[in-house]
Simulated assay, not measured.
Amino acid sequence: MAPETPQERTELADLVAARIADLGLSYRRLADLCVDPEALTEEEARPWARSTLENLIKGRRITAPTLPMLRALAAGLQLHLGQIQEAAGAQFLGIDSVWSQDGQARALVIGFREMSPEDQAKVLALIEEKTQLRRD
């Protein structure tokens, strides 16, 4: 992959950049903090290179991160794994998380952002209907 080609979506990059700013981290320090808590070896525990993090944040194309990479990133950024997975799914797979109004139900929808407003409303109505059925 050409590292100079920008990603079409930037959800994970934006989340990482914002959190780096909040925590006052450098790329190198973040790479040091990104340790997969489930890794079995030291080599597997540190899956992020400084340059890969920099490429991600600067919008250069990188390979989609693996689950161990996402766990390590969540640890380094002090965020819940779900937040990292949601952003990565959106950026790398085009999967949008669509939540019910009460935040109790979520649907993973491919291409939700590209849907017409009418189709988006239908998806939201389905989620709300299922949420209401669970309450009854």
Rank of each mutant, 00 (worst) to 15 (best):
L23Y: 01
R61V: 01
G94E: 08
D14P: 00
A90T: 06
Q78C: 05
K58R: 15
V35S: 10
A88L: 02
L25K: 05
A18G: 14
N55G: 11
F92C: 05
I95N: 02
T41K: 13
A18M: 11
E4R: 12
I110T: 06
A87Y: 00
E128Q: 14
T52V: 13
I57C: 15
R106S: 08
K130P: 00
A49C: 06
K122A: 09
W48D: 07
L53D: 02
Q78F: 04
R134E: 09
A88R: 02
T10E: 03
V35N: 08
L56G: 02
A17Y: 01
E54R: 15
T41H: 05
T131H: 04
E4Y: 04
A72K: 04
E43C: 10
A18P: 00
R28A: 14
R61S: 06
Y27Q: 12
L81V: 13
D22Y: 10
L79R: 13
A74W: 00
V109H: 03
P37Y: 10
L133T: 03
A31T: 06
I95F: 03
A31Y: 04
E54D: 11
S97M: 11
E128C: 13
S26M: 05
D119A: 15
S26Q: 07
E42I: 15
L56F: 01
L23D: 00
Y27T: 07
Q120A: 08
G82K: 09
A21C: 08
V109L: 12
S116E: 06
G94H: 03
A88T: 01
L40N: 12
I84V: 15
G24A: 13
P117I: 14
R135F: 02
P47V: 11
G59H: 03
R46Q: 08
A125G: 04
V98Y: 02
S26C: 08
E129R: 14
R29K: 11
D32Y: 07
A90H: 12
V109W: 02
Q7E: 07
D14A: 12
Q104C: 12
A125K: 13
R71I: 05
R113Q: 09
A21L: 12
L30D: 02
S116H: 08
A31D: 11
E128I: 13
R28N: 11
G59E: 10
T131G: 11
G82N: 12
L79A: 08
A75P: 00
N55I: 09
W99Q: 09
Q91L: 09
A121L: 12
Q85F: 01
P6N: 04
Q83F: 01
L56T: 05
R135L: 10
T66A: 11
P6V: 07
H80S: 03
A64S: 15
R28P: 00
D36E: 04
E114W: 07
D136Y: 04
S51D: 15
F92T: 08
S51R: 14
L67Q: 09
R60I: 02
E118P: 01
E38L: 15
A39D: 01
M69A: 15
L25S: 10
P37H: 03
L56K: 04
A18V: 04
G24P: 04
M1Q: 13
R29T: 05
D119M: 12
Q120H: 07
L53G: 00
E114V: 12
R50P: 10
P47E: 07
D36V: 07
R9P: 00
R9G: 03
D102H: 15
N55V: 09
